[in-house]
Design a protein around this nucleic acid. Structure first.
Lengths: 135, 135
DNA sequence: CATTTAAGTCTACAATTGAGACCTTATGCC
DNA sequence: GGCATAAGGTCTCAATTGTAGACTTAAATG
């Protein structure tokens, strides 16, 4: 139970000293957790456990290979759990763990930021690309 | 100026219908903005404008090539501005734009989540890798 | 005259990602 | 019987991305 006061202390420390590259929450944790497919899978799982093919259908542009890998990643990091169901043919069900659930509020805040500024950013990109068509 | 009530409506809509893959804030915006180096550069820039080599020194494990690319990305998306200084040899200064500044609070919340759960996640990874040493 | 500093670029190689064929087991359908 | 379907993946190959680090240009400094 870390207090907000301590959170501010942490923030000040980061900005003053930077992260140790070999023990850095951004490098080691965050960048793996905020990749395109893991974010979308986490959002899907927030509304209840999901099966593999169910996720495939809801995310039509993820390949089986990347879905498998994203799910393994989430499982490995303790954000999701995998359960084999005793059905025929046997199914698997993926659910959020407590840790995974704790990630969703801050993650959805960020997704909401992206959603709110999406149009503006797309416009900025067009301006930039028009100025420098060299690349 | 989107209200919290509307934010909840958006959230409910996403979870019920999912994102349109061809116009998706996670796929189009977020995944580009939350990569390892862009996050670290944004955090660095929060304490004031930074020069190219200054960033290189503060992030000893970023290559020049990736720093260049991350800064161009931030500039292209309108999160940062690039200013050439009239010094010899000429320097460049990178600053957060208003949009970039608006991203930092939710982004730092997420970094804080990663920081708080880092040790737990590392442990979960070890457990997982011990169980499945096949890979 | 060689070095340093500034802000990059360029090249070669390694790692990640994507598209999509293939696998296994079991059940329903004709 | 024999084929299609569904489940949850794996496998291979090609394309995209990332990394390491040598090289560039131009002025100032020792």
């Amino acid at each position: 139970m870390t207090s907000q006061i301590n959170a501010n202390t942490r923030l000040d420390t980061w900005q003053a000293q930077g992260f140790d590259p070999h023990n850095c929450p951004v490098r080691e944790i965050l960048s793996g957790v905020t990749s395109k497919w893991t974010v979308l899978v986490l959002i899907e799982m927030d509304s209840g456990p999901k099966r593999f093919n169910q996720l495939l259908r809801r995310l039509p542009d993820v390949s089986r290979r990347m879905l498998t890998q994203s799910l393994r990643d989430l499982e490995r990091n303790g954000l999701a759990t995998r359960t084999v169901l005793n059905t025929r043919p046997p199914g698997t069900e993926y659910s959020l763990s407590g840790l995974g659930r704790s990630l969703l509020p801050p993650l959805l805040n960020l997704v909401d930021w992206a959603s709110q500024h999406q149009a503006f950013i797309v416009t900025a990109r067009q301006r930039f690309d028009d100025q420098e068509p060299s690349a």
